[in-house]
Computed example of a mutant assay.
Amino acid sequence: MDYQILALDLDGTLTNSKKEITQPTLEALIEIQEAGKKVVLASGRPTQGVMPLAEQLHLEDYGSYILSFNGGRITDCRTKQAIYNKILPVDCIQGIYETVRKYASQGIDVLTYTPEHILSGIKSNQYTKLESRINQMPVIDASENFLDCVPDDPNKFLVTGDPAVLDQIRKELSKQFHSYLSVYCSDPFFVEVMPAGIDKAHSLLKLLTSIGLTTEQMICCGDGYNDLTMIETAGLGVAMANAQPAVRETADYITKSNDEDGVLHVINEFMR
């Protein structure tokens, strides 16, 4: 198959344990873009949190794409315009905040994003700080007036804290807003609160339609539960050797781990 587009999760997939792209993988990704193929950085991170890696890979020069907020937004790196943008229902925002805030005494925080900052709605915890480090974005304390600070177009909220407490919050939000929101864990200490029906596969299908490609021409690589749908949808769904068991079971192909240049191995096998 003549694969034309490569969608890559970031943490645990494209980047190694040091959160870095190795030089051989970097060079290979630039080489396939020079040959006319497209790269999509597909992440739960906010758009700004993906930008440093996009710049390393010269996505702007080659007209490749960022899929951020787990599919809430797709950005054309060349034009800087959103090809697809799905925001949280306005009527749900206050209810989400009030539900999460009930757990404030248990060390929970709720976050959303501006183009430059992460807004902390309760009190920053160790996982809020981790989100800040991952995305290289500063945290602003918005606990006094969080609802007034939320942008007009929020793509997601992120709830951070102890996994046992987060599971309770996830269940409560899912029950309360089941027809309006998708609520799931991307990590044990992160609960993603997204518009209903939004995931990486949904948004990749929008992108493929807009650029005239098919799922059969797409390779998707990932390691986590939020990568399952895109791996299932792709012409070639690839799990990293370090992927969750359910991801490895779903994939068409298992590559090497993220610390063994697994993405480079995929490129060498299927895109050169």
Results as ranks from 00 to 15, higher is better:
residue 91 D to G: 11
residue 122 I to W: 01
residue 116 E to R: 09
residue 117 H to E: 14
residue 113 Y to D: 00
residue 52 P to Q: 03
residue 68 S to D: 02
residue 25 T to C: 08
residue 132 S to K: 08
residue 59 L to V: 05
residue 109 D to C: 09
residue 114 T to E: 07
residue 114 T to F: 09
residue 119 L to Y: 05
residue 66 I to G: 01
residue 137 M to F: 05
residue 94 Q to E: 15
residue 121 G to K: 03
residue 26 L to N: 11
residue 118 I to M: 10
residue 110 V to M: 10
residue 108 I to A: 03
residue 69 F to W: 07
residue 112 T to Y: 06
residue 77 C to W: 04
residue 108 I to H: 02
residue 79 T to E: 04
residue 100 V to T: 09
residue 87 I to T: 14
residue 35 A to W: 10
residue 34 E to V: 10
residue 106 Q to Y: 15
residue 80 K to C: 10
residue 103 Y to C: 05
residue 135 N to F: 07
residue 135 N to S: 05
residue 90 V to K: 15
residue 36 G to H: 11
residue 50 V to M: 10
residue 76 D to T: 14
residue 122 I to P: 01
residue 72 G to A: 06
residue 38 K to F: 03
residue 115 P to M: 03
residue 77 C to K: 01
residue 38 K to V: 08
residue 92 C to W: 09
residue 94 Q to I: 12
residue 89 P to E: 07
residue 105 S to A: 15
residue 88 L to K: 02
residue 88 L to C: 02
residue 90 V to S: 12
residue 137 M to C: 04
residue 115 P to W: 03
residue 91 D to Q: 15
residue 52 P to R: 02
residue 86 K to H: 13
residue 70 N to E: 08
residue 32 I to C: 08
residue 44 G to F: 03
residue 132 S to N: 02
residue 57 L to P: 04
residue 112 T to M: 04
residue 136 Q to K: 15
residue 75 T to K: 05
residue 88 L to G: 04
residue 34 E to Q: 14
residue 47 T to G: 10
residue 82 A to V: 04
residue 90 V to P: 07
residue 44 G to W: 02
residue 117 H to K: 15
residue 95 G to H: 07
residue 106 Q to I: 11
residue 84 Y to H: 14
residue 62 Y to H: 10
residue 106 Q to A: 15
residue 105 S to L: 12
residue 104 A to T: 14
residue 46 P to Q: 03
residue 58 H to A: 13
residue 93 I to T: 03
residue 104 A to M: 11
residue 30 I to K: 14
residue 38 K to H: 09
residue 36 G to D: 11
residue 116 E to C: 10
residue 124 S to N: 11
residue 36 G to R: 11
residue 60 E to T: 10
residue 83 I to F: 09
residue 32 I to L: 14
residue 25 T to Q: 09
residue 130 L to P: 01
residue 78 R to Y: 12
residue 88 L to E: 06
residue 33 Q to L: 08
residue 63 G to R: 00
residue 120 S to P: 03
residue 91 D to E: 15
residue 121 G to W: 05
residue 78 R to I: 08
residue 62 Y to K: 02
residue 40 V to L: 00
residue 119 L to E: 04
residue 48 Q to S: 13
residue 96 I to Q: 01
residue 50 V to K: 01
residue 101 R to D: 10
residue 65 Y to I: 00
residue 124 S to A: 15
residue 48 Q to T: 11
residue 119 L to Q: 02
residue 82 A to W: 04
